[in-house]
């Protein structure tokens, strides 16, 4: 069975808006340059797409990033991961690898300890056939 505390409802959502509502509680979050999302323009292996998240924040006891949500718009579970930081983290920074079945947008929403929500620009990762070359 599910590990206790695991947010089943947010992960069970099948479309992006539902997943956002169930996790962030909002679907229209303004894009902020403070949220940096790095992903390859073209996936080498749709089964393991490297993603790096960095959010600009002082990470002090009274001003830090509490949660970061990682979404893939059309994945069977659009919410891919959820990260809860503490000031001891020093930096809201994550690197992991995710699955993507087809060309899609990856996006991140970050929540500050003051309750502010910040989004990254959506980043398109292309899943394509190859077979050509110079």
């Amino acid at each position: 069975g599910d590990v206790s505390g695991w947010p089943a409802k947010a992960f069970d959502a099948k479309v992006l808006n539902d997943a956002m509502m169930a996790s962030v509680g909002k679907t229209d979050v303004p894009v902020s340059p403070k949220v940096k999302l790095t992903a390859p323009s073209i996936a080498e292996n749709g089964g393991a797409v490297p993603v790096t998240i960095e959010v600009d924040s002082p990470m002090t006891a009274d001003d830090y990033i509490t949660t970061v949500y990682l979404f893939v718009d059309h994945n069977p579970t659009p919410l891919a991961s959820q990260f809860s930081f503490t000031p001891a983290s020093g930096q809201a920074y994550i690197q992991e690898r995710i699955k993507m079945a087809k060309t899609d947008n990856v996006r991140v929403i970050a929540k500050t300890s003051k309750g502010e929500l910040l989004a990254s620009a959506p980043r398109e990762v292309k899943v394509t056939i190859g077979g050509c070359g110079g």
């Binding site: 323009s41 073209i42 292309k126 056939i129 077979g131 050509c132 070359g133 110079g134």
Partner: peptide, 20 residues
Amino acid sequence: QVADNIFNVDPYYQQGGDMI
């Protein structure tokens, strides 16, 4: 798919080959 790997307006999506 191959055409988009050559003629995508964003060079970071170009793979530098020619059309199939």
